[in-house]
């Protein structure tokens, strides 16, 4: 596999799915994202991003059981695949490498 490429939003969503674990489906991901980041996220963009990630094989999905509260409609739960975890790791690693490469005086300037 070539170098992974993850967009910023994709990365955030992938992380959120990982955080939510068993409970990750479009609604929880949207709400979690809103609460954690404080930004208003469009539901449709979350939905499409989840699908795109699934197409890229970073996520896998399975339908849950029938639920009472939403007219019996099932939920599609997402879990991070091994590939997805690897992609997250790689992104993190790249970030860290970049941080480490920062010259100390710049770090000082940034107030860290």
């Amino acid at each position: 596999m070539k170098r992974t490429f993850l967009g910023e939003f994709e990365e955030v969503i992938l992380l959120t799915v990982a955080i939510l674990g068993e409970e990750a489906y479009a609604v929880t991901v949207t709400q979690e994202l809103e609460q954690k980041t404080g930004r208003v996220v469009g539901f449709s963009s979350v939905h499409t991003t989840l699908q795109r990630l699934e197409e890229k094989h970073y996520l896998s999905s399975s339908m849950g059981g029938a639920t009472a509260e939403r007219g019996g409609r099932r939920k599609r739960f997402f879990t991070v695949t091994a590939l997805g975890r690897k992609a997250l790791m790689e992104v993190k690693q790249v970030r860290e490498e970049l941080w480490n490469a920062l010259p100390p005086q710049t770090l000082q300037l940034m107030g860290i």
Binding site: A26, G42, S44, M63, T67, R70, R73, R74
Partner: peptide
């Protein structure tokens, strides 16, 4: 199926956080 269900849930959530009017608007937009 899941989208319809998800949106219903989101509607309820939006109603609580932003009020009925906004919720309807966001629902339609989505």
């Amino acid at each position: 199926e899941e989208v319809e269900g998800d949106l219903l849930e989101m509607f309820a959530y939006w109603q609580q956080t932003a009020g009925s009017k906004r919720a309807k608007w966001r629902y339609a937009l989505s």
